[in-house]
């Protein structure tokens, strides 16, 4: 039984420690959409995992929303837009 409990904590612990980046985004097609990356498991208002973020601009064409430009912006300003 002790082995079973040990196995559970080992498995659960490994999954908790596997920290990866997680992509977040917000905004609208009419304005622009920002994307940035945070550390996995903290939610989109958690710790940023890089200094830069992306801002995508879209235009509507025959019912489709087409990406027309992507610029680099600071990750902190992107996160501020998503976490006011």
């Amino acid at each position: 039984m002790k082995n079973l409990i040990l196995l559970f904590f080992l498995t659960y612990g490994i999954s908790l420690n596997a920290v990866e980046n997680h992509s977040c985004g917000c905004g609208s097609f009419e304005d622009s959409i920002v994307h940035y990356q945070v550390q996995e498991g903290q939610g989109c208002c958690g710790t940023l995992s890089s200094d830069t973020a992306l801002e995508g601009f879209y235009e509507q064409n025959e019912g489709q929303w087409e990406l027309v430009e992507v610029n680099s912006i600071s990750a902190s300003s992107a996160q501020k837009r998503c976490c006011p």
Binding site: C24, Q37, Y58, Q64, W65
Partner: peptide, 21 residues
Amino acid sequence: TKEAFKTPLDSNVWKALSGNQ
């Protein structure tokens, strides 16, 4: 429907654009 035009957040392109993944 409108959301379907957005690149999925789990796409690897975000990692590729960050330049060091």
